[in-house]
Simulated scan of single mutants.
Amino acid sequence: MAYGCREDRREKILVYDFGGGTFDVSLIDVEEGVIEVVASDGDTRLGGDDLDRLLQDLLYAHLPAGAAGARSGKDLRLEARLKNAAEAAKIRLSTETRVQVKEAFLTSLKGKPVNLEAQVSRGEFEDRIRAALDRTFDLVKGVLKTAKLKASEVSKLLLVGGSTYIPLIFDTLSGKLGFEVHREVDPTYCVAIGAAIQGAIISGEHLDTILVDVNPHCLGIRCLTIRPGGWENDDHYSVILNRNTPIPSSMTRTYYTAEEGQREAEIEVYQGEELTASKNTFIGSFVLDDLPPDLPLGSEIEVSFEYNLNGIVEVSALERSSGRRKKLEVDVNRGAGTKQEAAARRSRKSGP
């Protein structure tokens, strides 16, 4: 209901519902306002709270040995504060690549207060939760098998539940599994919105159309990919903001320098869905220069996109070790001709 699945056309829709306490996946057939559940499955022992606990375990590992040993379930105050800290960190890691977790006077050790100060990266969090998420993906595959369908035969996949903001979920469902993923409606509230719409229909209320502004195309940057054996591709398109993301929105991803002592990194911004950057629409670029002269190979550079309601995207790049940052504002509605501009730029670089 919240996603507008009441239109007069037939669609097969997969609902990926990652709630706080349970996970459910359902394949539904929608035709002329009639919704039929074709197949469903789930895990009543897996939910967003379990992901919080996995991150909570990681925070415990940052406490001193004696203090960490206090985890017996008797110190309810310690448990509650770490649980809240883990949930807050999980939410932030949906848009940030790393977060700083600070909690003062969590407990005491030998009569002295114990504070928590830990830095958690998105990669660490994803490593912790990967096995749990794989269980959900296996259930998705099982539902498709029961319905005798391929992912390409599903019109759209709808995300439900706050935990579906985790980038690894979107990336796996849209990339490896090949679904057309939608989250135009806030996954945290779409069940409540759908229930309200259904209630209004039952009571005979008139419903106006609600316009939700979304990102119409993927936004990302051109980057270099290196595979074992020395194979390189310097025209790879790395998506940072996915298509159909509600705006305003923001996202950060981490990239790495390709050379020892690399002094600059050019950030080229594109819009489109092609895997090759130059086949998409070029909308702007800038150079993050004056990097430290002794910068090691593989140093982290964080690239962030912030998309506002006026169609302006602020793109920023940060080299973490030095704190060197640059940014650019681009208008995604600039118009045609930008592909040629990007091709000319690369031609000048590769020329004599």
Rank of each mutant, 00 (worst) to 15 (best):
V181R: 03
E205R: 14
L173N: 03
S155A: 01
T172N: 06
V181A: 00
K156A: 06
V212L: 11
E205W: 11
L173E: 05
A196Q: 12
E180A: 12
G142I: 12
A200S: 14
I169N: 06
T172W: 01
D186S: 14
L168W: 04
V143K: 05
V185H: 02
L211H: 12
E153K: 09
L158R: 04
P187H: 07
D186M: 14
I210Y: 14
S163Q: 07
S203N: 05
I197C: 02
G161N: 01
Y165A: 09
I202Q: 09
T172I: 11
E205H: 13
H206Y: 10
P167Q: 03
A147K: 02
A196W: 11
C190W: 11
I210V: 15
G194H: 13
K145R: 14
G204Y: 04
C190G: 11
G175M: 08
V212T: 07
I210E: 14
L207G: 06
G162N: 07
I197N: 00
S174E: 08
L211M: 11
V154M: 00
K145I: 10
S155V: 04
V191P: 04
A195L: 14
F179R: 05
D213V: 12
I193F: 15
V143A: 06
A196P: 11
G175A: 08
T146N: 08
